[in-house]
Design a protein around this nucleic acid. Structure first.
Lengths: 130, 130
DNA sequence: CTGAATCCCACCCGATACTG
DNA sequence: CAGTATCGGGTGGGATTCAG
């Protein structure tokens, strides 16, 4: 078949068998656009609900709550209620969450760095494809 | 990843301000589960259409084509037609695509390493949440 | 302030059938 | 072999409303 030589080095994870599905449910968390943005923001330190809502830019109240629940369920963030009036809830990365946030940050850095290239590629592609 | 403690910081380090949306369309490529898997596979070297179809495990013909087009449009993969009989089409990462594949590989490694933790977290969460 | 619940529609994506 | 075209169910997710 093809030269698998390149993947022997470090990208052995690049090749998996039918057990893709097992990893997928973890990756699906990344697949969710809101999760990555939230993780990224929490990488800068704990934030409360309303702060996240302001800072995540464009997220609906519903999706914020739903996404936070999902992240909490996966053990990536913690949710601490501070019983004051008005109530206050802080969200913070867990230790494992921090490691994922690192990956996410790296990903975002990539996206920022290559956004011009991608935009140009799209323009070029669209130009030659009526 | 810096932690500047002060939650009031609008000037975050590492993460964006309200212009999340600009980065998002790039991240959305990552958000797509098929794109991630395809990038990962191509990280091991060029593959042809039918090979991808076999190896990506569960992808429909339609989604394979659509996803490949998207990746090509973004300048992340190349599509080279070899006019033989029967026809043959090879897909390979571009140079920029390689760098993204590296990120993706890192992400998949994370997912594999932390899958047990996530699974346990979910089980625990579901147990304490009727 | 921090959610939960409901409605509802656009769009994603899988299945199927057809072509060069 | 490598696609394209079409149809249709399922669902993600936005808007809105109510509650603690």
């Amino acid at each position: 078949m093809t030269q698998d030589g390149t993947l022997t080095a470090q990208t052995h994870t690049g090749v998996r068998g039918p057990q893709d599905c097992e990893v997928r449910d973890v990756l699906d968390r990344i697949g969710d656009k809101w999760s990555v943005l939230i993780m990224a923001r929490l990488g800068g330190g704990p934030l409360r609900y309303s702060e996240l809502r302001r800072v995540v830019d464009g997220i609906s109240q519903r999706m914020l709550t739903v996404t936070l629940r999902g992240l909490e369920r996966d053990g990536l963030i913690t949710r601490t209620v501070i019983p004051t009036t008005p109530p206050r809830v802080d969200y913070a990365l867990t230790e494992v969450g921090e490691t994922l946030a690192g990956e996410v940050a790296s990903l975002i850095r990539w996206a920022e760095a290559n956004r011009p290239y991608v935009a140009a590629s799209r323009a070029a592609f669209d130009a030659t494809t009526p």
